[in-house]
Amino acid sequence: MAKVFIKGNEAVVKGALLAGCKAYYGYPITPASEIAEGAALYFQPAGSTFLQAESEIGAINMVYGAASVGIRVMTASSSPGISLKMEGISYAAGSELPCVIVDISRGGPGLGNIAPEQGDYNQIVKGGGHGNYQLIVLAPNCAQEMCDLTMLAFELADKYRNPVVVLADGFIGQMMEPVEFPEPVTEFPAKPWAAGGTPETYKNLITSIDLDPDDLERHINHLYAKYAEVEANEIRYEEYHSEDADLVCVAFGVVSRILQSAIDMARAEGKKVGMLRPITLWPFPEKKLSELAAQGKQFLVVELNKGQMVHDVRLAVKHSVPVGSYGRVGGNVPTLKELYEQILVHLEGV
């Protein structure tokens, strides 16, 4: 279809409807409110439900109910709101409910501020809610991916019966870029497991409780077998001039965009630097990173936090090569020059 010049947040809404999302439940919070506002505008005319919930807790539990019945459903919020959703997310993971959660993350801890930060990496990628579970996490870095990865999120959620998070930041949400929307999805997987209040599904039960330790252990092992399958099939990343690079930068979201420009600057001066951008923050491109490390490359991880993803990179390369870390917080986004200088500093060590 023809290109549309559109905000990332609006691309999420349209992508969701193209993916057959039938309900949106959310609570306003900057910088994610535009998704709720977009959903309010487009969902009902498209035949889907939109409801502003009483809270993020209400919203995620409405998502839980809708997903139990078997429809595609989503919510969106920003960091403090995501914290509130964590109980519900843990329940959804335990009950194996497919749903999509968009986090336009902002400055924290506490009320923090509304500027972009990536301090939610740990709470989204490492859990955040209680118990043994794992979310699939997609990290767009442009408006096109806000659409594409939202659509993919619905597909993966259904495929693996698991909540999927689209983790972005205020810049990616606010930025306008050309987007080419794909055709609407018209075929959906059957959900014979749903508790839908229909003659076909009335024998079904959606629950996360298992009093018997052996039963619960079996269930958790089943979840982890599923996660192993996700790890085998769904790792996605993008490489930028990493082949001949001595220094490989690792970043996601808006940082990867600024780094791309910084790498161009450094390349123009003959510096051998490149980037690996994880598109799936979980499953994490561990193997790719360890291959790059085996070629003797060093790493620089740049994040809008005090160093969260860097631990995963260090684990992936098993501490075999130096992995530098550079982070800005509080809503400050590093400038092009700043990252260019960081590249030079870290290249010196190579």
Binding site: A23, A53, E54, N61, G65, V69
Partner: peptide, 12 residues
């Protein structure tokens, strides 16, 4: 959270 879950389910 049952009333919220019920809301999502009924509307679905």
């Amino acid at each position: 959270r049952a009333p919220a879950v019920a809301t999502g389910a009924k509307r679905a």
